[in-house]
Design a protein around this nucleic acid. Structure first.
Lengths: 263, 263
DNA sequence: CCATTTGAGCATTTCGAAAATCTCCTATAT
DNA sequence: ATATAGGAGATTTTCGAAATGCTCAAATGG
C-alpha cells in the first residue's frame, strides 16, 4: 500500500503491478506465502501469471514496505517471524495507534463520531456471534475489527502516522493469522475492550481512550506470542506444492532457503 | 533504504538496482531532483545509464519509501513539498526520535555512551567553525549531525522504530536542503541544544533528554517552514526542469558502469 | 460558438530472453 | 577422511522492444 492509498483508500488497481502488489500482500498476511519462504521469481511469476519483471517490481515494493526481505543477488523471501519482531510490532502499534487516537479525539467532529459509532456497531454485532461460528464469521470479524480501529484514528490528520499505523497493523494481522491456526478463537474479552474504547472516545477522554487502547493492543498480541517456534514449519519432501496454479488463489510457497555454510 | 539496511547499515550495494536506489534517494534529498518534478522513465534511464526496467524497479521502491509518488498509468514524480507535510514530518520525528531516545537511554550501556560522546565530539568541532565557512563545512555538519542523532538512538532495540525514524530524518533533511538555498546557515543555537541533549543522555535522564530533543527538532524545522510557496517552482513553458541533467551530480554512466567481478 | 470525437504522438507498462551470479555436486589432491 | 578446485544447473539481474494507455490539439457536428 502506498502513501497515497493510505491517505484515501482507493480500491481500484490501475495497473497489473498494483493489483499484484495487493494480491501478494494479502497472501503474505494471510499466510498463503508463509514466513521466511523463499520467493523464487520464475516459479512465482508462473503461479501468478505475470512476467518476471512485473513480479520483481512488486516484490521490490513489498521489500520497501517491510513484508519482504530482499538480499542482493540472492533474491526475495517473506519476512520471517520471531517473538522479538512481534514484540517490536506490538510496541510500535501502541506508540502509533495511541498517538493517532489522541490526535483524532482532539479534533473530533461529528462526522468522525458517526464513523466510529457505525464501525463499532458492525463489529459489536459480529462479536456477539463470532465465537459460536468462528469459521463462518472470522473473516468478518477481521474486517470489522480493522474498520473500527481505522475509524478511531481516521480523524488524525497526519498522513505519515496513518501510513505507518497501517503497515504495523498489517504485520500484527499476519501474526494473528498464524496464531489462529494453532488456537481456536479466543476473543472473549476484546468485545468489552472495544466498548470501553468507544465510550472513552465519544467522551473525548483522550487519556483514558489511549490507555485502554494500549492495553487492548498488548492483550491481543499476547495471545499470538509464544506461538512461533522455528522448528514448526512443515518440511515436507519435494517442493511440488506449487506445480499447480495458485488457481484458488493459493500460490503456495517454496521452502525456506537453506543458508549457505560459510562466507 | 531497506529495513535490513537500517538495522545494520551496510554500505556496499550488491546490485545495480540497490546502487541506483541510493543514488536517486540522495538526488531527491539533496534537491538535484526537485520536489514535484516528473520522473520520466526514458529520460532518466538515459541520464543514469540504466535500463527502463531497472529504473522502474528503483522508483517503485522509492514510492514505497514515500519519497516518490507513483500514479498508475501516469508514471512517477518526486513527492511534492508543502508546509503541511513539513509539519507532519516534524511531528513524526518528534514522536519517533524521542521514543527511540527514551528506549536507548533506558538500556544505556558503556558502548552506547562512548558512541554518543564520540559523535558529539565530531559534531561539536564542526559546529564551532561551520558558520564562518558554511560552504566548506556544511556537508560535514550534515553528516555529523545525522551521526549524532543516530548515535543517540542507536541503543534502542526496535528495528521498526529505527527504520521509520531514518525515513523521517531523510524527509526532514530534504526540507532543510531546500531551506538552505534561501537562507544562509542559521544554526547558531543548535550547538547549545546538542550539548544539553548530550548531558541529559549521559545523566540517563530520559525525560529531560526527550524534552530537549523535542524542542530541538521543532526549532530546526521552524527555520525551514514558510519557505515553500507553491507558486515558486519554475513551471517554464515546456517542462524543462528535467531536460538539464540532474548533472550537478553527474548521473551519467560514470560510476554506475563499473560492475564487480568477484567479492 | 461550444461541446464532443478522433487520432497522432508520447509516456508508461509489460513481456521474453540474454547476461551475470550463485549453489551445489563431483573430482582431485593432501 | 578432509579440504579445495572445477563446472553444470538453477536463479537472479538486466536489457531492448512490443503492447498498452494517456494527452492534447485539430476536426466534426450541434
Amino acid at each position: 500500500m502506498t502513501l497515497e492509498q493510505a491517505a484515501s483508500p482507493e480500491t481500484q488497481a490501475a495497473t497489473l503491478t498494483e493489483a499484484l502488489h495487493e494480491r501478494i500482500r494479502q497472501d503474505i498476511i494471510l499466510g498463503a506465502l508463509p514466513p521466511a519462504s523463499k520467493l523464487k521469481l520464475e516459479h512465482l511469476s508462473k503461479a501468478y501469471g505475470v512476467s518476471v519483471n512485473t513480479l520483481r517490481e512488486t516484490l521490490s515494493r513489498l521489500a520497501a514496505d517491510g513484508l519482504v526481505v530482499a538480499e542482493g543477488q540472492r533474491g526475495f523471501a517473506v519476512l520471517p517471524v520471531s517473538n522479538d519482531d512481534l514484540r517490536d510490532i506490538t510496541q510500535m502499534r501502541q506508540l502509533l495507534e495511541c498517538q493517532a487516537l489522541r490526535l483524532s479525539i482532539e479534533r473530533g467532529d461529528l462526522d468522525w463520531e458517526s464513523r466510529v459509532v457505525a464501525a463499532y456497531h458492525k463489529l459489536h454485532k459480529v462479536e456477539e456471534l463470532v465465537e459460536e461460528r468462528p469459521d463462518e464469521l472470522g473473516e468478518s470479524w477481521e474486517r470489522y475489527n480493522q474498520e473500527f480501529h481505522s475509524a478511531l484514528i481516521s480523524n488524525c490528520q497526519s498522513r505519515w502516522l496513518k501510513f505507518y499505523y497501517q503497515a504495523m497493523y498489517d504485520h500484527s494481522r499476519r501474526y494473528r493469522m498464524i496464531s489462529l491456526k494453532a488456537r481456536p478463537f479466543p476473543r472473549a474479552q476484546s468485545a468489552a475492550e472495544h466498548k470501553a474504547i468507544l465510550e472513552a472516545a465519544l467522551a473525548r477522554d483522550a487519556d483514558r481512550a489511549s490507555a485502554i487502547l494500549e492495553a487492548h493492543i498488548l492483550k491481543g498480541a499476547a495471545m499470538d506470542d509464544a506461538l512461533i517456534d522455528p522448528a514448526k514449519r512443515p518440511k515436507s519432501g519435494p517442493h511440488q506444492s506449487n506445480t499447480s496454479e495458485p488457481a484458488s488463489h493459493k500460490p503456495g510457497a517454496t521452502k525456506m532457503a537453506q543458508r549457505r555454510k560459510h562466507i
